[in-house]
Design a protein around this nucleic acid. Structure first.
Lengths: 325, 325
DNA sequence: ATGAAAGCGCTAACAT
DNA sequence: ATGTTAGCGCTTTCAT
């Protein structure tokens, strides 16, 4: 592979001139420019980005960390994040932690080694990591990574209220709520709180079903739903994330529990995939493309050294009325 | 950020010694090693991978190109590909082309610029690209990228036979087959051929429904299914990829067509997501983790300069019996 | 407008 | 066993 030196030699000019011509920085005469273009074509020259990276001390790579790509929410988030990063001239290096917390630390290490220019995280910070050792920009989706790290989240309060509203309006009295164990006071946990508050005000009783937020597999969902729906067979409504809600619908149908007549189901997320059910899942739709865009925008601002990057951005949610409630 | 020079100075040794000590290459005495470790800790030194990359002329980055991450098949493929790449010490740079064919060319360009060490592609090659200009390893999932590019695929013939077997055994007479327009003689297209051959032998008539393989959205699926199921309302079976099959199930249920009594449905892919239906979708399951592993293994072999990398690897498929046929 | 030369931070060959 | 030095391929002063 030819280098800039070969191009310079072939064109009969100096390397500096070639560099300026190719990067359109500084003055280059018409004819020299042409000779250089010719040389580039003749030698099939491609500038080595690695050398550029070393000089500029940037890689153009952004790490995107999610728990599990088999969860459609995170796949969708990654999709739009990659598109936004591409628009901004960056590439997305993906990492699904699949419960290996050391992988997050590894990614932080890659930032220190200049392999990554920044990080977008959709997972909790590992417990044994000192957030102060992070020297490059980080933006978080829905997770609390500490004071300095900007967070992008949905309007979970509104979402929670909409959920409660639907449940109350439908006349339900005993609701099974699937929830993760509260950990890091993450923003998304507030939707559960909001739901409970509003339901209690309306004298609807709540049964909490605790699920591991980082276990996102189909088997786990089905098993959890089977279990709780057997134990608490007197509930008249279920509230959960879309995937668990869809699992609940499937389980109910297999048990010949009619939805929505005997059991009402509310989801949260608004994933297309959950619309493949029949009846269609009623759910609160998060604006994933917007969340992705805001994450990337905040990160770019940090990369460009802007000072007043918003530390909390809340994206709107809407009710997607289906047939399960 | 301190460099290797600062570390050397702090430890009172030369930079070469520091490099050898840190990389465990060459001899370093106990005490020098200790001094260096101390300096590293004191200065909080992190070796700059960018400089290493330049020297070694490798980035450790592998591009993974898929059409759309919102399609669960590709999300799952990326998940396992990322895990396998990680095990081999590489990072996955993701690209969902979302119908922008120039993005594939861009990724090929990144290989020439040494940003990527190789490529794993799950999309068709762009028409205006000269495959001979590709100078770094490429491995393909289910797509024909030319003579030299190793392909990993499923046993589509077996899958096709299993599908036909189920349909015949169920006594169906008119089958609606959703298929992409054959383009590049891609391996996966052979499953349709196999199905048709076996069905014709058994005097089952076939109606082809042509869908765009690169349109993978929920709306498109539902719309396509609605359309074809309305036009051809006398069919007694449907065969399609899991997502379209699931859409067909949902549409049928909304039309009060009982599945499997009045309409039988066969899927292909074996995605967990399609198991959230009721009845559970009967489908042919591809071994996605194995496909991902084989792609990565083949790529690593190419990167290491091995000569006899298998040009075609066929992964087994199995019938996942559900309740839709 | 252009060439020469000094790095970017590291590795490895060569001395000692 | 360890220090010195010459690159890796590019960008960017600094002269001219």
């Amino acid at each position: 592979m030819p280098g800039i030196r070969e191009v310079a030699a072939y064109a009969g000019v100096g390397v500096g001139t070639v560099s300026r011509a190719l990067n359109k920085t500084g003055y280059v005469s018409r004819e020299t420019k042409e000779k250089i273009d010719e040389a580039v074509k003749a030698l099939n020259y491609h500038p080595n980005e690695l050398a550029r990276n070393l000089y500029r001390n940037r890689s153009g790579m952004i790490g995107v960390v999610v728990p599990d790509l088999e969860n459609p929410f995170f796949a969708k988030f990654l999709k739009y994040t990659e598109i936004e990063l591409y628009k901004q001239g960056y590439r997305a290096v993906v990492c699904n932690t699949v419960e290996i917390s050391s992988r997050v630390e590894e990614l932080i290490g890659l930032m220190n080694q200049n392999v990554l220019d920044g990080l977008i995280v959709g997972v909790d910070p590992p417990e044994n990591v000192n957030l102060k050792t992070i020297r490059k920009p980080v933006v978080s989706l829905d997770r609390n990574w500490g004071e300095k790290i900007p967070v992008v989240t949905s309007d979970n309060e509104k979402g929670g209220r909409l959920v409660a509203e639907q449940i109350v309006k439908a006349g339900c009295k005993r609701v099974l709520v699937f929830e993760s164990r509260p950990r890091m006071k993450n923003p998304f946990e507030s939707r559960g709180k909001e739901v409970k508050k509003a339901l209690e005000e309306n004298h609807v009783s709540i049964i909490r079903a605790e699920v591991e937020w980082n276990l996102l597999s189909y088997e786990y969902y089905m098993q959890a739903v089977e279990k709780y729906l057997s134990i608490f067979d007197s509930v008249d409504a279920v509230f959960a994330g879309d995937m668990i809600a869809a699992a609940a619908l499937a389980v109910a149908q297999r048990k010949n529990i009619r939805v929505p007549e005997k059991l009402k189901i509310m989801g949260f997320d608004g994933l297309d995939i959950a619309k493949l059910t029949s009846p269609v899942l009623t759910t609160i739709r998060q604006d994933v493309p917007q969340m992705a865009r805001r994450c990337v925008e905040a990160l770019i601002q940090l990369l460009e050294g802007e000072k007043d990057v918003p530390l909390l951005q809340v994206c709107d949610v809407v009710l997607d009325k289906g047939g399960t409630i």
